[in-house]
C-alpha cells in the first residue's frame, strides 16, 4: 500500500466512525484530535477497524503513533506493506 493509500484507509475509517464529520481538509501534519471530534473511544475503533480490515495489530502502547495522518503513515508503512485498500 502506498503512503497515500494508507492515508485514504485511515480517512475511510474515520468517515465510517463519524459520517457527520467533514474529512476533506485534514492537515496530515496536525494531530487528528485537534481537527476532528475524536476521543479515546474513537481511537480504539480506528485500531479495531485496522485489525478487522487489514489484519494489522496495534498494541495499546502504540496508540499515540496514530496521532496525525503523517504519523499513521510512518507507523503503518511496514505493517500495511502488501495489503490492498479495502
Amino acid at each position: 500500500m502506498t503512503d497515500d493509500q494508507i492515508k485514504q484507509a485511515i480517512i475511510a475509517i474515520i468517515n465510517d466512525i463519524n459520517p457527520d464529520e467533514d474529512t476533506s481538509n485534514i492537515d496530515p501534519a496536525v494531530r487528528l484530535r485537534e481537527q476532528l471530534d475524536l476521543d479515546s473511544m474513537d481511537f480504539l475503533d480506528i485500531v479495531m477497524e485496522l485489525r478487522k480490515r487489514y489484519g494489522v495489530h496495534v498494541p495499546d502502547t502504540d496508540y499515540m503513533e496514530l496521532a496525525s495522518l503523517d504519523s499513521c503513515v510512518n507507523y503503518l508503512r511496514d505493517k500495511m506493506a502488501g495489503k490492498v485498500l479495502a
Binding site: 465510517d16 466512525i17 463519524n18 459520517p19 457527520d20 464529520e21 471530534d37 476521543d39 473511544m41 474513537d42 475503533d45
Partner: peptide
Amino acid sequence: VKGARGLPLTRLLKQLRIRW
C-alpha cells in the same frame, strides 16, 4: 445539535455508527 463535539449523544452515535 448535529456536528456538536465531545458530547454523550455524539459519542453514542459514533460508537454505534448511527448518523445524527
